[in-house]
Design a protein around this nucleic acid. Structure first.
Lengths: 346, 346
DNA sequence: AAGGAATGCGGAAACGGTTCCATGGTATAT
DNA sequence: ATATACCATGGAACCGTTTCCGCATTCCTT
């Protein structure tokens, strides 16, 4: 019992093996300059005493803790998007012998930076080497974090209304290019009567809408949109927009949903309205979330590589830690058009 | 720059404030027995130097690190069930000033305990105080963990084939009672022709099936089941089972799906087959996952309180840490029948 | 006014590692 | 044979906290 209390220390090991503490330390780490026979005696003592080095004592000396903190801003996890980013961070961390602290933070975007209450994990110095900011990030929070002088990297697509220079590293995906490719693809299949659906009060929705408009303009098509701001969930927004879309004439031949959740709501509306997808209306989403495969037929959409974003966040952060003075980088991952069953050739 | 290197120490603060290190320490912690005027001078120095105590040095002395490790076994996060347990752990941890390390482990259930490769985070002592094992846990892994002498608590419902005494704390939900209530409810609405769908090669599926059989037996109903083992995903399994169910005569009036994913597959099958839910067949699920609300009408199901399981895991673990000798506890949370639209009164 | 308890405070010791320096031994070069 | 280099090793010093001990001061109590 209570192995915590009377756990063996490095000095116990040294005594047991009949060597000095320095030698034990050398065996534990690099291990250079230790005779084979000595090393084996030390290892035996370690096994015999069940010695495991104390993490804290060790870290006092090391320059870094080899722990990063994944900080999820203003989000809950039932939304699997950020859970998958965390998954990517953890997968990568495991390979690189790093560890991941998980913490959440909730604040109002209107609160003054100095007044935001930070999770207590940020009070201490040296617990972790750097921060990965996921979830939704507002400028007031970033200002606050910057003051802490902790290296950090931000998942950039959910950066809301950030004006001015960005004095931090960023990782994100190319929402404009992804949507542009998607719409081009739909147009290439013969669709000329397109409609975009998405609440443009979100900045990342605006990016996708602009890509939609650009594609239409490039092909001299007249775009229609349902883009009102709303308090509804994305799925409900899609369902509501679907009802409105069905009331318009002529019906669009293809609807571009700003994401898969909205697409799901649209699909439900169309189904209820007896309108076949993709028979009468083609449908395309964005993100490639779990909903895409639940639809029938499965949703054609644009895949955001969530796990890879996580990996890139960690790698960028570690790079920053190694080279504190390097210029700030903005990494943009590409997306993939995933053709499934909801867009048909006209 | 590089605030990491020349960061202020407690001695710098002491010098700046013209007091001893002991006094600064007292101000930082409990703060008893320090004159108000002195305390203010110290706090001023702390603010002035931007002093933040070194987490590691502090933890050398403390009995505990106030960090727990959430270890996800053999799972990925797109499956939101465990993500929501983690969410519960984190919410609770934030309130209790604890921190959460997140790590994953992947192993084969056939590997000998001694040969399972553990994440490197378990090599060091003192990094965290205890473990929360979520995901799917096999006996070989638990045996391995037990040898490490680290306090741990297990999410119990995904414990596969564990025989014999359980020398650890457990938190879970009452799958039997939850399913029993659900089936009783369906029977109470007049259904007499029930069918259970779920791959019984999973232990937790068997528990639910037994509850289903018990309820049928209690009401002298003749149960039917589709329970073959399969490699299919749950949704696909439901869809496959749905086709088989529609081929049988008479059709069941109600289908009890072992979980919401299977229910989703069944719903899709029934819809494709032109069979109305709940018009011709009522449907009930289990878990209350995101899929339940995506169905149309939304799925009547049994809610597992995932966040509360997470909270209970953390609380149990902290209790164990406080009282290492207390007898092992097995906490079972109740479930809630969530009546939505897929079960109709006959 | 004197004795005793409680408070305020400084500084040494301790925590469990790493790092560095001094030392003795062995191999190689001259 | 001697100088030089390098290897193997023990042990002291150190990292930045907390804790504890001891002393000075203050506050009651009688």
């Amino acid at each position: 019992m209570s192995s915590v209390c009377n756990a063996a220390t490095i000095r116990d090991v040294a005594r047991e093996a009949g060597v000095g503490v320095g030698t034990v330390s050398r065996v534990l780490n690099g291990g250079d300059h230790v005779r084979l026979e000595t090393r084996e005696r030390v290892m035996l003592a370690i096994r015999h005493l069940g010695f495991r080095p104390n993490a804290q004592a060790r870290r006092i000396h090391r320059r870094h803790s080899e722990i990063v903190c994944f900080l999820l801003g203003n989000r809950k996890f039932p939304n699997s998007f950020h859970a998958r980013i965390l998954q990517g961070v953890e997968d990568c961390a495991r390979e690189l012998k790093q560890h991941v602290l998980f913490a959440g933070v909730h604040y109002d975007s209107e609160t003054a930076p100095g007044l935001i209450e930070l999770p207590s994990i940020l009070d201490e110095r040296g617990l972790f080497d750097g921060l990965i900011l996921s979830g939704t990030n507002h400028p007031n929070f970033l200002t606050r974090i910057q003051k802490l002088q902790i290296p950090f990297v931000v998942f950039g697509n959910n950066l809301v209304d950030f004006e001015g220079d960005k004095y931090f590293d960023q990782v994100g995906y190319d929402g404009f290019k992804g949507e542009l490719e998607a719409v081009e693809n739909v147009i290439g299949l013969g669709h000329e009567n397109l409609m975009f659906v998405g609440d443009v009060s979100y900045p990342w929705v605006r990016v996708r809408q602009e890509a939609f408009l650009r594609a239409c303009q490039d092909h001299k098509l007249k775009p229609r949109s349902i883009i009102e701001a709303s308090e509804l969930s994305f799925v409900d927004y899609g369902e509501w927009a679907g009802r409105r879309a069905l009331a318009r004439r002529p019906l669009p031949t293809a609807v571009v949903a700003v994401n898969d959740e909205v697409a799901y709501g649209l699909w439900r509306s169309f189904r209820r309205g007896g309108v076949s997808v993709p028979g009468e209306i083609s449908l395309i989403g964005f993100d490639d979330r779990e909903e895409a495969l639940l639809m029938d037929p499965p949703l054609t959409t644009v895949r955001v590589r969530k796990e890879e974003i996580g990996r890139a966040c960690l790698i960028t952060l570690l790079e920053r830690l190694r080279h504190p003075e390097m210029p700030f980088v903005e990494t943009t991952l590409s997306t993939d058009l995933v053709v499934r069953g909801t867009v048909r050739k006209l």
